[in-house]
């Protein structure tokens, strides 16, 4: 009897937590896509993800109409070289942040299908481990620090 009620409450608890999608628990801020030099066919999306939940969550994939392929990547510093590698997911720790920034974790846009212009937003959809998706409209940011402050 005892076991059964415990089981019921466990089931209830898990179904309750499953009720809210990850998209409701992870806040995305400061997102942008980096402008590219002429002829460059790859760019990257950067952002800060804050997890308000008590469980870790993960981005498992991303997609965008602006690129043929979208992959999750990171940089590591090994043997004196900067190495860029695809990662299976990006973890956003419970109560913490995942920072996607130059030189670190990022969402790679490979084979750009549109010219990246400063006044035209880029749409990127990120998918979490529960299958829920968050559509983002990201501004294109120039690389030059002076140019960024000049407007």
């Amino acid at each position: 009897m005892m076991t059964r009620s415990l089981l019921t409450s466990l089931l209830l608890a898990s179904s309750l937590s499953a009720f809210a999608a990850v998209t409701d628990k992870v806040l995305v801020s400061d997102g942008y896509v980096r402008e590219v030099p002429p002829g460059q066919m790859v760019s990257a999306a950067f952002m800060t993800l804050h997890n308000e939940d008590m469980d870790d969550h993960k981005i498992i994939s991303a997609s965008s109409p602006a690129a043929k392929t979208v992959e999750l990547h990171t940089h590591t510093h090994e043997n004196g070289m900067m190495k860029m590698r695809q990662v299976p997911n990006i973890n956003i720790p419970a109560g913490g942040d995942a920072l996607l920034k130059p030189g670190g974790l990022h969402i790679m846009l490979i084979g750009l299908t549109q010219e990246l212009k400063k006044d035209v937003p880029v749409y990127v959809t990120i998918k979490y481990e529960d299958g829920s998706e968050k559509a983002l409209s990201l501004p294109v940011k120039g690389m030059m620090p002076n140019a960024m402050t000049a407007h």
Partner: peptide
Amino acid sequence: TTCPDICP
């Protein structure tokens, strides 16, 4: 030139 992040 196709360096995605580090060179830029």
